[in-house]
């Protein structure tokens, strides 16, 4: 191959490999959004697990809840901090959405940032959307 063709290919490669750097050049709006706690959550003060555990692990908790309800018909969850929860994604005050009432300002803020699109809402509903 001719030297010039190789150099052109090399330049394309370097530009592509450094894509994240030049694409984000000079940006300062890349910090993570802060999920907003609703009034209910503020009053409750505590989540199901410790805050850090919740941040990293809430999908596994939801998986556990789902299996417990759907497979064992057991809807009661006793958290490590002694609180009791009626296991549910969005039904009742004790559910995720029951306490974190504003899904857009809470769950979705993180999920949009991290590019996760939980498929749960194809079947489960966000009560707020129904009353609107």
């Amino acid at each position: 191959m001719s030297k010039n063709a190789i150099i052109v290919g090399l330049v394309i490669f370097v530009v592509a490999a450094l894509f994240p750097f030049w694409f984000n050049l000079g940006r300062s709006d890349t910090v993570a959004p802060k999920p907003e706690l609703s009034e209910q959550a503020k009053a409750a003060k505590k989540c199901v697990l410790e805050k850090y555990d919740m941040r990293a692990n809430h999908m596994s908790l939801l998986d556990e809840w789902r299996d417990s309800v759907v497979r064992d018909a057991d809807r009661m969850y006793e958290a490590a901090n002694g609180e009791k929860f009626q296991m549910s994604l969005s039904t009742g005050d004790n559910s995720c959405i029951g306490c974190h009432t504003n899904k857009e300002k809470f769950c979705d803020k993180c999920h949009d940032y991290a590019s996760v699109a939980p498929y749960c809402w194809e079947c489960h509903t966000n009560p707020k959307e129904i009353t609107q």
Partner: peptide
């Protein structure tokens, strides 16, 4: 083992924006 993805992304973004 799980990791806090949102903090990790914030960290990576801080690297690629040179802060």
């Amino acid at each position: 083992t799980k990791v806090d993805i949102v903090s990790v992304k914030e960290f990576i973004m801080s690297l690629v924006t040179f802060h």
